[in-house]
Design a protein around this nucleic acid. Structure first.
Length: 222
DNA sequence: GACCAGGCACATC
DNA sequence: GATGTGCATGGT
């Protein structure tokens, strides 16, 4: 086991002990996860929940229902999630791809080759690396490690990487040093967000942070 | 009233 | 290739 792999394991164990299981994406259906992945772009999950509830109330929590909605109506429904005009277009673009290539069937998507699926997702307007990986991991159970702003911040703050690092670099750091376990990737990412929110805030020092004792100078690994 | 939140595309240099 | 900006609601 490499030194990085060992440190990642220490991080994970420390975070799990401190915060417990996070139960992320407690959605009623995988499609709800897909919708949430788009709606949560740069947006708090609370607002996303409101928007998803409004979609459900409108009977629009399916690919074909979203496809059929006029774009203005869709935007109005998802309004609480913010950026509603652009997200309405992104959401409809995504479901139209799902329908065109997979009949709008997530089970069929699951049987596709993950790397192909990721490329196809990235080709949809409004689906970037994080949203694509969130869909792959949380909706389809593919072991892709989701990287977000918190992941960057926590990783930099605690010496996992030498900034600047890009998305693929940080993702490789996790995927290359952890067993490809979707449930664990899911939990680990949620735990990184938890510690990011509570301790590793933008300006503040990580006071009482459970990762403090594992922090070190990344130069030492170089 | 500023700042932040589970990003991404596009313009400009 | 790097850097800046628009997109928008709702909670602190």
């Amino acid at each position: 086991m490499t030194r990085t792999a060992k440190r990642l394991r220490e991080f994970y164990d420390a975070l799990l002990e401190r915060f417990g299981p996070q139960h992320w994406w407690p959605a009623d259906s995988p499609f709800e996860v897909v919708v949430g992945a788009v709606l949560t772009q740069n947006t708090s999950w609370k607002n996303v929940e409101k928007a998803v509830a409004r979609l459900a109330a409108a009977g629009a929590l399916s690919p074909h229902a979203i496809d059929a909605l006029p774009i203005e109506a869709l935007a109005e429904i998802i309004r609480p999630a913010g950026y509603y005009n652009i997200k309405a277009r992104r959401l409809q673009g995504l479901v139209r791809w799902m329908i065109a290539d997979y009949g709008g069937d997530l089970e069929r998507m699951k049987s596709a080759h993950p790397a192909t699926l990721r490329e196809q997702l990235l080709a949809v307007k409004g689906i970037g690396p994080e949203t694509a990986d969130a869909i792959l991991l949380y909706a389809l159970g593919v072991p892709r490690f989701v990287v977000d702003a918190y992941t960057f911040r926590v990783a930099a703050r605690h010496g996992l990487l030498l900034p600047p690092a890009d998305y693929d670099e940080l993702q490789s750091l996790f995927e290359g040093n952890l067993a490809p376990d979707a449930a664990m990737f899911n939990e680990f990412h949620a735990l990184l967000v938890a510690v990011g929110k509570e301790h590793c805030r933008k300006q503040a020092r990580c006071e009482g942070c459970p990762l403090e004792r594992f922090s070190h100078d990344p130069q030492a690994d170089a």
